[in-house]
Design a protein around this nucleic acid. Structure first.
Lengths: 127, 127
DNA sequence: CTTGACCTTCCTGTTACTGGAAGGTTTATA
DNA sequence: TATAAACCTTCCAGTAACAGGAAGGTCAAG
């Protein structure tokens, strides 16, 4: 199938599929006579795999590792769990950071009258 | 004062101060004969203001607005509160997204034995 | 006078794409 | 059969907010 068909079936933009091919993440299975990219079912499955992994928040590099494991029948589930655990730690770190920001910012907003006067605790805090 | 002194006092990397000057966010107050950037106290205060605003998570464009309000004695606190409120909404949206990811990923991780066998619910989910 | 610590501009790389230009191919229709 | 629409290709630029580094000028100390 052509790239647009593969993209549609994998639920990815054509541009993204071409990008994944460029960086060697999911390469097309071949080329037509005229130079068009051709995708087979195996390549299609990889594209869909990547889309799901990206949706979970894995980086491209992590996806590269994951797809290696995906294709490696001799993989250990420990390897997969390690990568996923690392990603979970990143999520938790970001969550802590956001919670702290939310706390501080909502406190500032609550203390600001938000009227036409210049007096503003938010500016005071920053200045 | 020179850029390195200003950077130290504002607690910012020299590279960042130069970058802020390049994009017109905080321009140096002058140049020495030899072309060195010179910062006065007003510029220094702006740099420190920006550092704090960035730490709260405001984007450079939001910082541009905020520093405009910071210097505008006729500002209304409502304008500041609006920008801060917008940022708070972004934080909350990101928090929801992360909470959802955390939920899904921790569930997958918990169900994965993480041993030397290939069988892995994380891969199953992605594949 | 030379060494080292400054400073300058300019270029590249980062993440993961997206948009667009210029141009070739295929398919459907008039 | 001509042509227009809808594909496809490569390449370049831009996004956010810097960081690293090269090449080269400046300044203060010993």
């Amino acid at each position: 199938m052509n790239i647009s068909t593969a993209a549609k079936l994998a639920d990815l933009p054509v541009k993204t599929v071409r990008y994944y091919a460029d960086i060697g993440l999911v390469v097309e299975s071949g080329r037509s006579e005229s130079g068009y990219r051709v995708y087979d079912d195996a390549a299609l499955r990889k594209l869909a795999f990547i889309r799901k992994a990206r949706a979970i928040g894995f980086s491209i590099d992590e996806c590269r590792e994951l797809i290696g494991l995906y294709q490696d029948s001799a993989r250990s589930s420990a390897d997969v769990k390690r990568i996923a655990g690392h990603r979970l730690e990143q999520i938790e770190a970001k969550q802590q950071e956001l919670a702290s920001l939310h706390h501080e910012l909502s406190r500032l907003i609550a203390s600001c009258r938000g009227d036409e006067r210049a007096d503003c605790p938010i500016i005071d805090f920053l200045g």
